[in-house]
Design a protein around this nucleic acid. Sequence first.
DNA 1: ATTATTCCTACTATTATGGTAGGTTTTGTA
DNA 2: TACAAAACCTACCATAATAGTAGGAATAAT
Lengths: 151, 151
Amino acid sequence: MVIIEMKISSRGRYAVRIMVDLAVNNTGEYAKVNQIAKRQDISEKYLEQIISVLNKAGYVKSTRGAQGGYKLARDASSYTVGMILRLTEGSLCPVACLEGDVNECERCDTCETLEVWKRLNVAINQVVDSITIADLSDKQRARQGAMDCLI
Amino acid sequence: MVIIEMKISSRGRYAVRIMVDLAVNNTGEYAKVNQIAKRQDISEKYLEQIISVLNKAGYVKSTRGAQGGYKLARDASSYTVGMILRLTEGSLCPVACLEGDVNECERCDTCETLEVWKRLNVAINQVVDSITIADLSDKQRARQGAMDCLI
DNA sequence: ATTATTCCTACTATTATGGTAGGTTTTGTA
DNA sequence: TACAAAACCTACCATAATAGTAGGAATAAT
């Protein structure tokens, strides 16, 4: 039997990093995919796909053509990590029956374990919704500043 | 692009339910796979595979042959949900780089998002390690008792 | 001896993962 | 107006995980 794992996928992780990258390197200009890809060490083509999801959700805005690129649509403090992950991961619910307004599982009235998944769900969302992209980019800027001092 | 989800797999969910079932229906006798399967509405063959993992870990004990079966190896209060899930799901870490003692990710010194995954990891483990199989089986017994009164 | 049971291994269909690839459209600039 | 740089769009692919099914061997009670 193979060992399974409950993990955030690379797409979700990359999406958060892209948002933080745009926040850290925000100059007002549009950042190009190849610049972000280089800084973040993510394949340009894969990054393109992920940022397009962020774009369609209105989290970033883009201009096409030469000198085009992407930038954050709003201030970095208005995005939580949870928003980004829910967008790119689909859902953070640890079990399917907690999605939607009504629990459609037939066993849900007598389910021995539902309480566990509910508490897990609350705990997960509390963490990811309490951290904003601004929190992460501020820390990153501080780290980079500290690094500069060492040169 | 397909929507992905970070979920506890059926194996982990079933494993917890099996342990709770053994606790709730504990008579001192060995419970048979077909009995558990019927009560829990899980395929016998699939349940067999899952309980064998629990058996190899020493969480349940078995006797073979006619009148054989399974029972909890220790008191239900000595098992946390986390123990069962980590055994059957492999790991509950939301990202691979948090597994093991040393973070082997090359980017880990400058990772913008590591703190998020660390906090998520703590939150997840706090929940699953604070709930024991006895907690769940006690509640289930109370629920069943309440149901009996309605008859 | 028979039967009931665990135990073991192989197999399978479907979906998710983590991308790669190539072309189309748009737009700034020479 | 031509060119180049960029986003945009769609298809494709290899590998692994998921959620089981299936069949038989070993063991033990009756």
